[in-house]
Every structure is written in structure tokens, then in C-alpha cells.
Computed example of a mutant assay.
Amino acid sequence: MKIKRLVYSALIAAIYAALTYLIAPIAYGPIQFRISEIMVLLVLVDPFYIVGLTLGCFLANLLGPYGFMDITVGTLATFVAVVLMSGTIKIMKDSKFGIIVASLWPTVINGVFIGYMLYYVVQAPLLLTMFQVGVGEFVVVTVVGVPIYLYLKEKNIFKRLGYRV
């Protein structure tokens, strides 16, 4: 079972990095829609995927245009966001709003961390950049990702794969 989870985490990391790099023009910068961020909702299925998602972000940022700052700040932002998501869903697992609340962490964390990093690296306007990054995260994770997650959950896809969601 542990080997299966490790393989899934490695696949998640690879898919996250590949998706990010394939849509590079809109995955990096002050206005970004990193489609791979939908995958952060996988921590609601299994918190073990924090590792794969963090590694995937690290790999994607290795290939990105902002170098060391994005590798460290971007990876840290993803790690903090998915840890907070996992903790939120544990606390609010019986609430119908738990998934929505958990999905907001990437918006807040990436908006602040990446917004500040872009302000520092490319002298983008701080508050505007934080807002733009946050909006991109909100659209990808909450507006698009949550309905997909809920659909998969409703269709028992996660249970068929052996998860207790």
C-alpha cells in the first residue's frame, strides 16, 4: 500500500509539473491561471499527496522564469496552502462548507506569497499582483476545481479507487 501511495505521489508531481510547463504562458507571472492547481484538491482525498503536490510545484518552478525566488517561495506557498487545506478539511469534515473553506487557502496563500515574490523580483505593483494571483487561484481551485471534486465524490470515483472520502 505504501508503494502504491508513493507511486501516486510521483505521478501527481509529474502531472502537476507537466501541466504547468505545458501552459507556461499563463502559469507564471502576475496574471496566472495555473491549471495544475486544481490538483491541490487531492489533499482532501489523501493528505499524503502533500508531498507529491509540493514536489510537483518545485519541479514546475525549476522550469519557470523566476529562478531561485520562485523555486523557494512558490514551493513554500504550495506546501503551506495544502497543509492548511488538509487541516481545514479534518476540522470541518462534517460541514458542507468544509471543501469550500479548504479551497480558499491556495487563493490566500499564493496571492500573498507569490504576489510578494513578483513584487520583489519584477517590481510588479504589490497589492494588484496579490489580487491578480489570488483571483487566478480562486477561479482555478474554487470555481472550477471544487465542482469537479464534488462530481467525482458524488460518483464514488474516490471510493472505487480505495479512498474513504
Rank of each mutant, 00 (worst) to 15 (best):
L11Q: 01
A13P: 00
A13R: 01
A13W: 05
A14H: 05
I15F: 12
Y16E: 05
A17R: 10
L19A: 12
T20A: 08
Y21R: 14
L22W: 13
A24W: 03
Y28V: 02
G29M: 06
G29C: 03
I31P: 00
R34Q: 13
E37P: 05
M39G: 09
M39R: 11
M39E: 09
V40C: 13
V40Q: 12
L41D: 05
L42A: 04
V43G: 09
P47I: 00
F48L: 00
G52A: 04
T54H: 10
L59D: 01
A60S: 14
A60R: 13
P65D: 11
P65H: 12
Y66D: 02
Y66T: 03
M69E: 13
I71G: 07
V73W: 11
A77Q: 10
V82L: 07
V82W: 04
L84M: 14
L84H: 09
T88Q: 06
K96S: 08
F97L: 14
F97Q: 11
G98V: 13
G98A: 12
I99G: 01
V101A: 14
A102I: 08
S103C: 04
P106S: 00
V108R: 08
I109Y: 05
G111N: 04
V112N: 07
F113G: 08
Y116P: 00
L118V: 05
V121L: 06
V121H: 02
V122M: 10
